[in-house]
Design a protein around this nucleic acid. Structure first.
Length: 753
DNA sequence: AACTGTCGGGTTTTT
DNA sequence: CCCGACAGTT
């Protein structure tokens, strides 16, 4: 019955079979984390736990799907009835049932980021506020973070610290926008992404009998990637598992070293608080890495050692040394692409690696283009994950907006999107009037349109539009989701609008509309809920709520053997035989947006750690000396993270190792003697990256005092070599082995005097 | 109301 | 470079 446990190592075994009470599993990369999670569920099932009383929360749909599939392998058909899915998807499903309890319609719509920004933009415009001072993006982030910290608009206004902060940031009106935003979402019968968590929290908080229902139902709660949970998500977990008489069966799995969503409010404080909140917590550390070879594991350990705050653990492997990590230095971004594809071709022909064992990872999605071009040129099948998802394309959103308006006439953002597309003579000035009317009479935008009637020239168009939409609404009674969507696409003239466009873009738009319709049809035909295994609600409203949470278009790829291209964030949790981590340059990785504090740099470093630990056997690190950015050629230095890898783990090709060594390690050692490890003494005072401005290398001369980010203050003893090859001997008094030879081309030094 | 051209700004990671 | 916002024109 529990034969499947045999393949586990002792710690894994304990983590799987300790099912009573709170459990924390700290799981290093490649340590069999997913295995532990899935086996744990299988073990619960084997012990007679009902599948529907297990709640398994993940962060991505992909992770959830994979988990269910793997439970299926171990536990059979029971697996499909386990509630396994993302926080957002599972809670939205519950909210759909319970929404009316907290004043939302069951057919509430979900505002995506674009809708939220658009709504904030409208508010700022309607109130004639300065949009320089109140940028929609920043306001949205602030609202999101307020919600994630359980600060309601009222609590926000009462919070002196927040208000002082806003005053100092010259956005004293922020709380008013926040208040209005929340009111407008409510009026529109809409929840944004954060609401899916926040409203569920409120439900548990304010409705004891409902809280009781879900507490009784979810006897076993499991959370994957616990390091990425925010305050609100942890709050929900506590609501579900901490109450009088609770069995407190909660199991959190995570790795502080892989926390990469701090920018979104995730905090590893949750891991630290977990111990305090759940007395008797049992902690298991999975430290053996089964994924990668020694060179990769050693490099990863070395790099992450530069981070300050972390939970102590030792990741080790008993695998072979394996191949050393290869570095590619390219002249520019085009050459970087070419050389990565050359390496891919070599892996294919010489090592016979299939495409699906190779991935190109980058910091920003925008970097994918060049690799795409080269792959296409070589006829290598590839798939890009992330980036603009199918459901975010204009034409797809247009049709969805029609459907949203049909389902929920209060949905203001959807209404604004469709009212004059295709053009029907209802322009901006009319809509501004309507918005004013709606505000003045406290009615919805839709009701304002109805009320306006045929008073002006545009009024006739409005009446026609309303009649059309009402016609659609009546059809919901008789048509299924697919037939209705088809009817709407045709009747609204949206389909014709795209079909009459014969440019390449237009054709692809039409195809996307078609693909969306196909997707709706598929939805109406399958019977089981993907994440809960329950009988599916096939209404149009249910469909819309479903797709609002999808990011990757799960379009079936014709090819099954493709090279994967994705951001490092998207790669979390995955593994490949060969990884190409590209664009390793200062400003890009670490990103210039995240160089303002030590904490931000540390998060970038964790991201780098996540990236390199995806590789099982082959790892390439590449950088370009120049690349196009905002239409201009930019020159960047190699990423600091390259210097942080021990040169012993790097393959010596093209002189790269010497260059990096010169940049960051002591003078060349003799023969094969063990080299002193590059330990930075703890006494080096922290240098604030914000004020650190490297001086041009050609200005550095003997006798100067300089600052180095890692080594602190130093005195230049001498400089030898010429132009590009100038090497300085510098005495850094704050570190062990104070005398360092540094290749000026690579080092970042700031002249002090 | 709709279309056209110009200007200036931003520019990360994701449910 | 690639958007979107805006002003000016039809």
């Amino acid at each position: 019955m529990t034969d499947f446990l045999k393949g586990l190592n002792p710690v894994q075994h304990q983590a799987v079979t300790t099912i009573a009470g709170p459990v924390l599993v700290i799981a290093g990369p490649g340590s069999g984390k997913t295995r532990v999670l899935t086996f744990r569920i299988a073990y619960l099932l084997s012990q007679g736990v009902k599948p529907s009383s297990i709640l398994a929360l993940t962060f991505t749909n992909k992770a959830a799907r994979e988990m269910k599939e793997r439970i299926g392998h171990v536990a059979g058909s029971n697996a499909s009835r386990v509630w396994a899915g993302t926080f957002h998807s599972l809670f939205s499903r519950i909210l759909r049932i319970e929404a009316e309890e907290i004043g939302y319609p069951a057919d509430f719509t979900i505002y995506d980021t674009e809708d939220s920004k658009s709504l904030i933009g409208s508010i700022i415009k309607e109130w004639n506020m300065d949009k320089e001072a109140y940028p929609t993006n920043g306001i949205r982030n602030r609202i999101s973070s307020a919600k994630s910290n359980l600060l309601t608009p009222k609590a926000y206004e009462m919070n002196a610290e927040q208000m002082a902060n806003d005053a100092a940031s010259r956005i004293p009106q922020f709380y008013k926008i926040y208040t209005e935003y929340v009111a407008r979402c409510r009026k529109a019968g809409a929840m944004d992404f954060d609401d899916l968590l926040l409203q569920f929290f409120r439900l548990l908080q304010e409705k004891p009998e409902i809280a009781k229902k879900y507490r009784e139902r979810f006897q076993y709660v499991m959370v994957d990637e616990f390091q990425d949970t925010n305050f609100l998500q942890y709050g929900i977990l506590k609501k579900l598992t901490l109450y009088n008489g609770s069995p407190r069966n909660i199991c959190a799995v995570g790795d502080d070293a892989q926390s990469i969503y701090a920018f979104r409010g995730a905090t590893i404080d949750n891991i630290l608080d977990f111990e305090k909140d759940f007395a008797g917590l049992q902690t298991f550390k999975l430290e053996q890495n089964y994924r990668s070879t020694k060179h990769i594991v050693e490099a990863a350990n070395k790099v992450i050692g530069y981070n300050k705050r972390q939970i102590r653990k030792t990741i080790w492997t008993d695998q072979d040394e394996g191949q050393k990590i290869k570095i590619i230095k390219a002249i520019n971004d085009t050459e970087e692409g070419r050389r990565v594809i050359d390496a891919i071709m070599e892996l294919k022909t010489r090592d016979h690696l299939p495409n699906h064992e190779m991935a190109i990872l980058y910091r920003t999605n925008a970097q994918s283009r060049i690799f795409e071009e080269h792959l296409r040129r070589h006829n290598i099948p590839y798939k890009i994950f992330g980036g603009q998802s199918f459901y975010q394309r204009k034409e797809v959103k247009d049709l969805i907006a029609y459907l949203r308006t049909v389902v929920n006439y209060r949905d203001e953002e959807a209404l604004k999107r469709v009212i004059n597309f295709p053009k029907r003579g209802i322009g901006n000035s009319t809509m501004s009037q309507m918005a004013e009317l709606a505000a003045a009479e406290s009615i919805t935008l839709w009701d304002a349109l109805v009320k306006a009637g045929p008073l002006t020239r545009s009024g006739k168009s409005i009446v026609k539009f309303i009649e059309m939409m009402n016609g659609f609404r009546e059809k919901t009674e008789t048509l299924n989701a697919y037939d209705l969507a088809l009817w709407v696409a045709k009747e609204s003239r949206l389909y014709d609008e795209y079909a009459s466009d014969h440019t390449i873009e237009g054709i692809s738009r039409k195809e996307n509309i078609q693909a969306l319709l196909d997707g709706i049809q598929e939805f109406t035909e399958s019977d089981e809920e993907e994440y809960t295994g329950e009988v599916k609600d096939k209404s149009l409203a249910s469909y819309l709520q479903n797709i609002a949470l999808l990011t990757d278009a799960d379009e079936g790829v014709d090819e099954t053997d493709f090279v994967s291209l994705m951001s490092v964030h998207a790669a979390k949790g995955l593994e490949f035989l060969a990884i190409f981590l590209v664009g390793l340059e200062e400003q890009l990785f670490p990103s210039f947006m995240s160089m303002n504090s030590q904490d931000e740099i540390d998060e970038e470093r964790r991201l780098f750690y996540v990236a390199i630990t995806r590789a099982k056997a082959h790892l390439w690190l590449t950088f370009a000396q120049s690349r196009y950015r905002y239409g201009q050629m930019r020159y960047n230095e190699p990423s600091r993270f390259l210097e942080e890898i021990d040169t012993d783990n790097l393959e010596d090709t093209g002189g790269m190792v010497q260059e990096l060594e010169a940049a960051s390690t002591p003078k060349a050692r003799v023969g094969g003697a063990p080299r002193p490890s590059v330990q930075v003494a703890a006494s080096v005072r922290a240098i604030d990256p914000a004020t650190f401005r490297p001086s041009p290398s050609n200005e550095i001369e003997a006798g100067m005092k300089v600052l180095h980010m890692k080594f602190g203050e130093g005195e230049v003893m001498m400089v030898d070599g010429a132009r590009d090859n100038r090497v300085a001997t510098i005495f850094f008094k704050e570190i062990d082995n104070p005398e360092r030879r540094i290749m000026l081309k690579f080092a970042k030094l700031m002249i002090v005097e």
